[in-house]
Simulated scan of single mutants.
Amino acid sequence: MTLHRFRAMNSQFFTKGLDEGAQAMAESWIAVVEEKLSRFNPRSELSNLNRSAGQPFRSSTLLYEVLAEANRYYEATGGLFNPYMGHVIRQLGYSSTFEALAETSANSDPMFVTKPFDCEQPLILDPDTREVTLALKLAVDLGGFAKGWSAHQLSLMIQHAGVRSGAIGAGGDLTLWGVPDEGWSVSIGDPWEASRDLMELQVRYPAGIATSNTVRRQWRDSAGQSRHHIIHPRTGAPAESDLAQVTLFAPNLVDAEVYAKCVLLLGREQGFEWLADNHPACAAIGVLHDGSVRTVGAIGQYAEERGVRE
């Protein structure tokens, strides 16, 4: 199958099994999503929404749909998945793309005090007019959710165009539909060594696969304290979890993206129990900070292990 790569959303994207027309569709769609949803672009529609907090904002169909979907997960997870932490993550120092952040010192707010997220209704949605009203003093940060949502939507469009089997990778996350005879070979990376894989799986069923970790995207704030981008809404601070990384398998990529973060935030014991009780169709592979690997759910519903690389 043809492998096609392109750069977008400060991440590496790839497609596999698509013809040139579908490849062009992929690049065009992701470019449109990035233009509208980037919090790092002050001219994006998302940035305009954030500047309009407290006032009704007439959104495009794309922005409305992704906000409605993100808010649905916010409500379904009891706020554990929280796309309304934009000001928090900016004040902690993540105010530019991570590539730019790695080359400079983080500009955190020395007066900022972390506190639990507390807003009864962060977003009001009007489906008739596509008006959205973001609560005053909040900012939306869709982060990895935007990548997962856009890749999932793209896969639906491509399937509708008649492509019966394919793969889309979005910054380490995967959506797989249809399955070639040989299956899909999927590697689980080492959280600490980007060039090393912990294990290789042979995926034989359609799946959304997302990985969330607290190791790769770290920076030091203006006080020299180490920070990462997974913020716990119940504290307003970077999560302190015994899990360094979670790779989650779900029926679709958006579920995988959201639930991977939830499990990581909750930690191994509580997070694995939460996943098993609430989302039995999902499975997860967690890597603890001591390097040990733990699993929950029926991984065999999605894949079989092919070995661990030394």
Rank of each mutant, 00 (worst) to 15 (best):
G86A: 09
S108A: 15
E305S: 07
I231A: 13
Q218S: 11
L264R: 10
A244G: 15
K147A: 11
R309A: 13
S96E: 15
P251W: 01
E99V: 06
R227E: 09
P191G: 12
Q301R: 13
D109S: 14
E20V: 06
W177N: 08
E257Y: 00
G143M: 00
L288N: 06
F13G: 03
L174F: 12
M85A: 12
W274S: 12
D190A: 06
Q121C: 02
G162T: 01
T2S: 10
E193I: 05
T77Y: 02
A106S: 14
L80G: 05
G17Y: 07
A146H: 03
R309Q: 13
A237E: 13
V88F: 11
M1D: 11
T214H: 00
L142A: 13
G86P: 12
Q153W: 07
R51D: 12
F112M: 03
A139K: 01
D255H: 08
E257W: 00
R306P: 06
F57S: 04
S222W: 03
L264S: 11
L123F: 08
A100D: 15
I231F: 13
G307K: 08
E182L: 10
E305M: 04
L80Y: 08
T214C: 10
A146V: 03
G291H: 10
C119K: 03
L154D: 10
W219V: 04
L174G: 05
V33G: 04
S195P: 00
N50A: 13
L3I: 10
Q91K: 15
I158A: 06
E99A: 12
T129F: 00
S212E: 05
G148F: 09
G171M: 02
L176I: 06
A70C: 12
P233F: 05
P180V: 03
F112R: 01
A207G: 07
E35V: 00
S28C: 01
G17W: 04
L138E: 13
R227Y: 07
T15N: 00
E69W: 05
T247S: 15
